[in-house]
């Protein structure tokens, strides 16, 4: 099948989830209770919402991740033609990885890879 049929799987997901949710909305019983609609906090009275300032502990990981993820996008086409290009492709990737490795070592030394 051609790549236009990709849309099929999108529609399938919509139908599967949408159909079940619509069915369930009509078939399931409903009741109203003030306590039921509170978020679950192990039974103690709920204090504030969850949408407050939040320390994202992996902020530095996310930055290092970005570098490596973009790198993977570059390496994938390289991997596909590695066999045909041969020696020059190999030398290039060694240089590329040395630079990347230095970057990773730097991040490591600066304690960016440490959970705080």
């Amino acid at each position: 099948m051609s790549s236009e049929s990709l849309i099929l799987f999108f529609i399938l997901g919509l139908v599967l989830v949408g159909g079940a949710v619509v069915f369930s909305t009509f078939a399931a019983p409903k009741s109203w209770n003030a306590a039921k609609f509170q978020p679950y906090e192990c039974g103690i009275p709920v204090k504030d919402g969850a949408w407050t300032q939040f320390n994202v502990g992996y902020y530095l990981f996310a930055i290092v991740y970005l570098v490596f993820d973009v790198e993977i996008v570059f390496i994938y086409p390289w991997g596909a033609v590695m066999k045909e290009v041969g020696m020059s492709a190999f030398i290039e990737i060694v240089i590329f990885f040395v630079i990347l490795g230095l970057g990773l070592a730097y991040a490591w030394k600066k304690k960016a890879l440490k959970w705080v």
Binding site: A20, F23, S24, T25, A28, P29, S31, K36, F37, Q38
Partner: peptide, 9 residues
């Protein structure tokens, strides 16, 4: 399928 679907306040 027959359980209530509700959204938290």
């Amino acid at each position: 399928l027959f359980k209530e679907l509700f959204v938290v306040k």
